[in-house]
Amino acid sequence: MNERLLEVFTSNGLITAFAAVGLLMLVCNLISKHLTAGRIHGSAIAIAAGLVLSYIGGVSTGGEDGLADIALFSGLGLMGGSMLRDFAIVATAFGVDVRELKKAGMNGVIALFVGLLVPFTLGAIVAYLFGYTDPVAVTTIGAGAATYIVGPVTGTAIGAGSDLIALSIAIGLVKSISVMIVTPIVARSISLNNPSAALVFGGMMGTTSGVAGGLAATDARLVPYGAMTATFYTGLGCLLGPSLFYLVVRALLGG
């Protein structure tokens, strides 16, 4: 009888994944609200929890797809797979208002390019120093240092393994959480108190959840400005990561 009941979940894999992720996010939002006083967004906690569950799934099954290797949660592979992931990421560009973006002006554009170039370069150097010499690995980790979206999208495009993609999510997550925590503390000293600076800030940091969380704790009215350039950053990162950045890394490392 147990098997028959279990089949309700396994034969509706994607639906089970929706329910499971929804439950996980509910728990993480409660943790965010009550244990961190909203300082760390529920989304960041949920992604971290996802990585931990993935680790548990990997250890218990010996497979390579984290929690999705457990039959009950196999739908997570479809829900978090590249098709639906890219679809949802493209949809976030809907929030970008071209007229507002023009307000960012030249400094916003400079921030976007510098904001991408710096983490790409630093992430790639750190990866190299830790012994990753394969161009695909260096590129994926460097892209992860941009955001936990640019990393996996770049990694998938250039054929990186799941372990590298997990690493690029982790590095992007460290960045996202640090931005959330540090922003309200240093806001004053970096003059982050006007929409113009918020637009630059979003373009420099790029991590949409980190920027939105950090600005919400600084001054909630700055959030739309920062989030908008951060969304643009994601698009630009997904464009440059698997193309220009990968080609430069490949040319430098050979392969």
Binding site: G58, A91, S209
Partner: peptide
Amino acid sequence: LYIPIVVAMAASQNVVGA
């Protein structure tokens, strides 16, 4: 649905390898 999908993505990676 962007964040929930990212959570699902995080939960289906080879974290042990990473």
